[in-house]
């Protein structure tokens, strides 16, 4: 694996070109460029806010901020996986004709989406500032310093998953359909629309603590939790007349999550490397 990484570094300019190309092609011929990619999450967030806050009556002050802070990482997760499922087939010509480290393709899908994510976070912070200044909203907290670490962990997790997904789709073209279904389910299982404290209160009391730890063992659940609790202050909510109190971040589980993300990256890379030279014969 060390040799493979060395070879990868030799081709770092190709990675840069792949990412630039991805971004250019995506926004070619559209004047609003980046803002189109932002419009979709913003409309989604507005819709979910109306449904959850006014129809389902989960009453959390400044709910859309808590939603957005979970939704932006979700979009990163979803888009990187969907893009990577197609990335090998999209570069069929290149793979069949030229040598280069194949892993650059899924990596470029992750990095292009990471750049979107970071730009979206910038917009998110502008929103927080505006809210803070004009509407006395939540202050920006010192724990924002965690953000680079959380982004790194999510990127590692995604790198591993995209290696597996991009590779599987070469051998089983149903992978992309299966992935769409799984992502749809996962969106509701991840505490994006709701807060994990709500899950906690619904767990059977006998093993509440243990079951909740199991719930946080899902790396995306833990990461969503961590984004929410480091970027925004503790919330006070009410649902159906019952108060919901914010629980502090479980650093122990965050460490476990970090380990899972690292294992994901290494394991995914090993899986991909074992199969990457067969792509040229299969596609």
């Amino acid at each position: 694996m060390i040799e493979e990484i060395k070879e990868l570094l030799r081709f770092k300019d190709l990675l840069k070109q792949l990412v630039i190309r991805d971004l250019k092609v995506r926004y070619k011929n559209s004047v609003l460029g980046f803002f189109w990619s932002l419009l979709n999450p913003l409309v989604q967030v507005a819709t979910i806010t109306i449904v959850v806050k006014y129809i389902m009556r989960l009453d959390i002050a400044n709910y859309s901020a808590y939603l957005l802070v979970g939704y932006l990482p979700w979009v990163f997760f979803q888009m990187a996986l969907l893009d990577s499922s197609q990335v090998i087939l999209m570069h069929r010509d290149l793979i069949r004709k030229v040598y280069f480290p194949r892993e650059l393709l899924p990596l470029s899908a992750v990095i292009a989406n990471l750049i979107h994510f970071i730009l979206a976070l910038v917009v998110f912070f502008v929103y927080l500032l505006v809210y803070r200044i004009f509407l006395h909203g939540a202050p920006i907290m010192a724990s924002v310093a965690w953000l680079p670490i959380l982004i790194l962990l999510q990127t590692l997790l995604l790198t591993g998953l995209t290696f597996v997904v991009s590779c599987m789709n070469v051998f089983f073209e149903d992978t992309k359909y299966l992935l769409t279904v799984l992502l749809n389910v996962l969106f509701y299982l991840t505490p994006v629309m709701y807060v994990s404290e709500l899950v906690y209160t619904r767990l059977p009391h006998a093993h509440q603590g243990l079951l909740f730890k199991l719930y946080l063992l899902m790396p995306l659940n833990m990461l969503t939790e961590a984004y929410r609790k480091t970027l925004l202050p503790a919330f006070h909510g009410v649902m159906g007349g019952v108060p919901i109190e914010s629980v502090p971040l479980d650093y122990m589980m965050l460490a476990v999550c970090a380990a899972i993300c690292i294992i994901s990256a290494i394991g995914g890379y090993a899986y991909f490397n074992a199969r990457k030279w067969v792509f040229a014969e299969r596609i």
Binding site: R21, V25, R96, K97
Partner: peptide, 12 residues
């Protein structure tokens, strides 16, 4: 040079 235009992106 194993093919014409291998790896050219049509939109770029």
């Amino acid at each position: 040079m194993l093919d014409l235009g291998a790896g050219f992106h049509p939109d770029l």
